[in-house]
């Protein structure tokens, strides 16, 4: 039972990260119908921004200011910086292709992803970097029941990711910007005719989605410690599938999909085999995408002719 709960917590932690990245995918896909392969790499950039903010405050072992302020700065700067990067990528790479055939932006997205990965490789090298979280956040704080340990970092990741998702949900359903985003997602031309600033709305969507990915990157650094330049590719792949599993374009769907994939992965690692985790997860995801492409919470979309 302890092992079960422990794996569940691991799954929820990983799932929270998948869900945050999946939200960005889902939002961007919603407004542009673009599979943004570079999204996973924005997550990687976020992890690096967080790392350098941490170093700037004196490094994990000799922090100059209290830990909560450092964490806040890491999240804010990573979120803001990566959000701005996302907006720049949209302006530069995707906007000229908005009316091009579907295949063109997809290949551009591959190119952007490759460019980001290798720029980071050029600047910071291929070696792993270590957040060394345990040096400034004690892992002994947290919930301990018998042999079950849920440390404070994992609690923070799960709580923060759920809070961000609720905030995003409120933003999309209650605010003016959210209404514009939904309008652009359902019909861009009609939205433009109704006086909605489509360019601004798309930029805002990219900012929000990329910021979430950046924050997820910092969280990944805090939980798993190690960050490297190629960390974004696989998580991008899985997060997109999480968005599809939940039903693309749906925010609760992306959350559900992210948590489901995280938990499934944790249980496969814990109970079946850690060598074959990725292989089994890939198999399940391929099967799911073939059998139910509309996702769990998505609606079957009729193709307009």
């Amino acid at each position: 039972m302890t092992k079960f709960t422990q794996e569940l917590v691991n799954g929820l932690t990983q799932g929270g990260l998948y869900a945050l990245v999946a939200l960005g995918y889902s939002m961007v896909y919603g407004v542009l119908k673009l599979l943004n392969f570079a999204h996973g790499d924005l997550y990687m950039v976020g992890a690096f921004v967080g790392y350098f903010v941490l170093q700037w405050f004196g490094g994990p072992t000799a922090l100059a200011v209290p830990v909560p302020i450092v964490l806040l700065a890491m999240f804010l700067l990573a979120g803001g910086g990566v959000g701005a990067l996302g907006v720049a990528i949209e302006r530069f790479a995707y906007r000229p292709l908005r009316d091009a055939p579907r295949i063109a932006p997809l290949i551009t997205a591959l190119g952007v992803s490759f460019l980001l990965e290798n720029t980071m490789l050029l600047l910071f090298g291929a070696s792993y970097r270590d957040y060394n979280t345990s040096a400034f956040i004690s892992f002994s704080t947290g919930i301990h029941i018998g042999a079950l340990n849920i440390d404070i970092v994992r609690i923070m990741v799960i709580v923060l990711s759920v809070a961000l998702m609720i905030g995003l949900r409120l933003l999309v359903s209650r605010t003016q910007l959210g209404r514009q985003m939904r309008a652009v997602a359902s019909d861009r031309e009609a939205a433009e005719m109704l006086g909605i600033n489509v360019d601004y709305t798309i930029s805002a969507t990219f900012f929000l989605g990329s910021a979430l990915a950046g924050i997820a990157g910092v969280m990944a650094g805090l939980v798993f410690n190690q960050i490297y330049t190629l960390m974004g590719f696989i998580i991008g792949l899985k997060a997109f599938t999480a968005a599809v599993v939940g039903g693309i374009g749906s925010i609760p769907g992306a959350m559900l999909g992210g948590f489901l994939i995280g938990i499934a992965e944790a249980f496969i690692t814990g109970y079946v085999s850690s060598t074959y985790t990725n292989l089994i997860v890939f198999g399940i995801l391929i099967a799911f995408m073939i059998l139910r492409p509309s996702g769990l919470l998505g609606r079957v979309q009729l193709q307009k002719v």
């Binding site: 896909y29 579907r102 792949l237 599938t241 599809v244 990725n278 890939f282 198999g283 073939i290």
Partner: peptide, 26 residues
């Protein structure tokens, strides 16, 4: 047969990744 565009792209990308995982581990 069922998937088009982006969905097909991602499923085939999974297949490519699965091949690398397969040759690495199995």
């Amino acid at each position: 047969r069922r998937l088009i565009g982006d969905y097909l792209a991602i499923v085939t990308l999974f297949f490519g990744e699965a091949f690398v995982e397969f040759t690495n581990n199995v």
